[in-house]
Amino acid sequence: MIDLGPDPIIPDDEAAEGGCGVIGFACEIPVAGKHLFTSLEQMRNRGNGKGGGVALVGLDPEQFGVTREILDNDYLYTVAYLDPAVRSEVEESFIHATFEVDHVHEMPQLHEWQTRLPELDVEPPEVVCYFVRPRVAAIEEFQAKSGLSATDFDGNEGMLDEIVFHATHALNVEFYAGERGSQAFVLSHGVNMLILKIVGYAEDVIRYYRLEHMTAHVWIG
């Protein structure tokens, strides 16, 4: 059994349960986020506005400032900073300690969101995308502590995935589900994929993070 560290703290007050509306499509050509608006807005009566998000797969490397090689081989490790003041600590203690960072992309924000998105009650978090690869030292530490190697997984890629999972769990417990409260958390990690979520609706995510012209081959909202 692999030790995942401390368990998260579950708050006593639970949000009211709501319905869920989902749209998804996959296309051979890249599709911009603005094309989801009509369908998403028609589904507002299916949700309660407490949590809306989008997932993108098959991204455009130029829109993130990376090469095709980096996009296809690095993990896109996306962190939401509810408290931007902890960013340097997160990067020092978790990101750079575990990963080689090839590129950092800060998601743009709609700064006049209070007037342009008046239905949002909570300001969405700052989001930073890190294009990363597990460090050799982190791989060796994982193997030493767990007694596992690539042969115990589906090859080396499976072992690297496990290391990333461990890093995400540790970061989330420390900065989101632990005694420190909600300061930062990992939105998604994976290759050539991105997930964004806010307290609001999915179309608000697209507008707030300026995804109207961002393209992907697969969208879920």
Rank of each mutant, 00 (worst) to 15 (best):
I195E: 10
V122S: 04
L36T: 05
E126M: 13
L36M: 13
L71G: 02
S88Y: 10
A170C: 10
P124C: 09
D74Y: 07
E41L: 11
E212V: 08
C27L: 08
V136C: 08
G51T: 05
S93G: 07
L76P: 02
G47S: 14
G155F: 06
A26T: 11
F64S: 00
S93M: 12
G200Y: 02
Q183V: 05
Y130S: 08
V136E: 15
F142R: 08
F175M: 05
F185K: 01
A167Y: 05
V127F: 00
I10H: 11
G190R: 00
P84F: 10
L211T: 03
F37V: 05
D152F: 04
L76T: 04
P84Q: 13
A216V: 03
Y209P: 00
D13F: 14
C129M: 08
F131R: 04
E126T: 13
I139V: 15
I9K: 15
I10K: 12
T67P: 05
V101R: 06
E126C: 10
L194R: 01
G19K: 12
G52W: 01
H96T: 07
N48R: 14
L171Q: 00
D83N: 13
S39K: 08
A150Y: 04
F94H: 09
C129A: 14
S88N: 11
S93L: 15
F25H: 07
Q42G: 09
M214Y: 00
H213N: 15
Y209C: 01
E157Q: 14
Y130I: 11
A15E: 12
F25M: 09
V136N: 13
H35M: 11
L82I: 07
G65W: 02
T215P: 01
H96K: 12
V90N: 02
E203G: 01
T151H: 11
Q114S: 10
I206L: 12
G147I: 07
V86E: 03
E141P: 02
T151Q: 14
Q109L: 06
